[in-house]
C-alpha cells in the first residue's frame, strides 16, 4: 500500500471538473484508490462519493493506493492534484 499527502489547491474545492477528473483518473487503475480528508474516507473512483464529501480548498488530503499498479497510480494522482486537475 502507498500513501502520500497533498493539499487541495483548486479554489472551488473538489467540485465539478476536478471531481470528475479525479474519478476518471482513479478508474484507470486496477488498485483501490481512497482519499482521506476531514476524517472521512472516500472512494476516489466514485464521482458521487467525491462530490458528496465536499472537500474545500486548502484541505490536506491523504491519497491511498492499494493493489498491483499502486506505484503508478499514486504518482499520477499526486501529479494531478499538483496540477490542480488542469484548472
Amino acid at each position: 500500500m502507498k500513501t502520500e499527502k497533498v493539499v487541495l489547491e483548486n479554489e472551488t474545492g473538489l467540485h465539478a471538473r476536478p471531481a470528475s477528473e479525479l474519478a476518471k483518473l482513479a478508474s484507470k487503475f486496477k488498485c483501490n484508490v481512497k482519499i482521506n480528508a476531514n476524517g472521512k474516507t472516500i472512494d476516489a473512483k466514485s464521482i458521487l462519493s467525491i462530490m458528496s464529501a465536499g472537500v474545500k480548498a486548502k484541505t490536506e488530503i491523504e491519497i491511498e493506493c492499494d493493489g498491483e499498479d499502486e506505484e503508478n497510480a499514486i504518482k499520477e494522482i499526486v501529479e494531478a492534484f499538483k496540477n490542480k486537475f488542469g484548472e
Partner: peptide, 13 residues
C-alpha cells in the same frame, strides 16, 4: 454532459 454520464455510471448511485 461527461460529468453527468459519470454520475450515471457510478455504482454508488
Amino acid at each position: 454532459m461527461s460529468a453527468y454520464l459519470m454520475i450515471i455510471q457510478d455504482p454508488t448511485l
